[in-house]
Amino acid sequence: MIRVMIVDDDALVRLGLADLLADDPGIEVVAQAADGLQAIELATAHDVDVALVDVRMPRMDGIAATIRLRALPRAPKVVILTTFDLDEYVYDALAAGADGFLLKDTDPDEILRAVHLVAAGSAMLHPSAARRLIDRYHATTRSGTTAAQARLDRLTPRERDVLALLAQGDTNADIAARLAMRESTVKAHVSRILTALEVTNRVQAALLARDAGLGA
């Protein structure tokens, strides 16, 4: 059972998400928060696996909340909820440790899929919007590109192949199919990649890969 917390200042959005998630027998909504500060309190009191977090909220926004949530002893995975017009903030949230994001008009089935993917250790980067948003708002400097390339030099050629597909938003199953590998082998490669690149999740690894021009 995946334990989910919904964080949004719009009561109707919270209600709609709660109704959607309740239809999935593998998901339990254990908490609902109206802002980032309440989210921290509830995540401390409850065992939360995945938090769906809005970007703009009173008292504490989704970016600050993501940093605080990921720093908790029992840190939940975080998926950012946003609208396209606000996505200049999404990169900051992903860099802070979020495992992905959803546009608020995402198909309901994709929202459920995102919860399951993130809970299982994968990331949810919307196939088209994620790349567009990161490209638009993540302008790398020459020094940043050089530093990213230096980290990638720590990887084996096979690990670079895996990272290139990861940077495109592929799941472990997708990567296994495309590289003719077992999924367990892909998981081992991903674990090694995160360690070598000194990042905490797949999204940060993907951003670093894009900084270095891999898979761009």
Results as ranks from 00 to 15, higher is better:
residue 16 G to P: 00
residue 189 H to W: 11
residue 87 D to A: 15
residue 68 R to E: 15
residue 159 E to M: 13
residue 108 P to C: 02
residue 141 T to W: 03
residue 207 L to M: 14
residue 190 V to P: 00
residue 74 R to V: 15
residue 14 R to F: 02
residue 192 R to P: 04
residue 112 L to Y: 02
residue 84 F to R: 15
residue 112 L to E: 05
residue 50 V to S: 10
residue 215 G to C: 07
residue 195 T to Y: 07
residue 128 S to Q: 14
residue 68 R to M: 15
residue 74 R to W: 14
residue 158 R to P: 03
residue 169 G to T: 08
residue 66 T to G: 07
residue 105 D to H: 11
residue 90 V to P: 01
residue 212 A to K: 07
residue 107 D to P: 00
residue 208 L to H: 06
residue 64 A to K: 12
residue 71 A to K: 10
residue 129 A to I: 13
residue 165 L to S: 01
residue 105 D to R: 03
residue 199 V to G: 00
residue 168 Q to W: 04
residue 127 P to S: 01
residue 118 V to R: 00
residue 76 P to W: 09
residue 123 A to D: 09
residue 167 A to T: 13
residue 102 L to R: 12
residue 153 D to F: 01
residue 140 T to H: 13
residue 216 A to W: 09
residue 136 R to H: 13
residue 37 L to P: 00
residue 99 D to G: 11
residue 94 L to E: 03
residue 158 R to E: 13
residue 188 A to H: 15
residue 146 T to I: 14
residue 204 Q to K: 06
residue 143 S to Y: 10
residue 201 N to W: 06
residue 163 L to D: 07
residue 21 L to E: 04
residue 55 V to N: 06
residue 121 G to D: 03
residue 121 G to S: 07
residue 22 A to Y: 03
residue 15 L to I: 05
residue 122 S to V: 02
residue 144 G to C: 06
residue 78 V to L: 02
residue 155 L to V: 06
residue 173 A to R: 13
residue 75 A to Y: 02
residue 127 P to Y: 04
residue 101 F to S: 01
residue 167 A to P: 09
residue 19 D to V: 13
residue 176 A to Y: 06
residue 177 A to R: 15
residue 190 V to G: 02
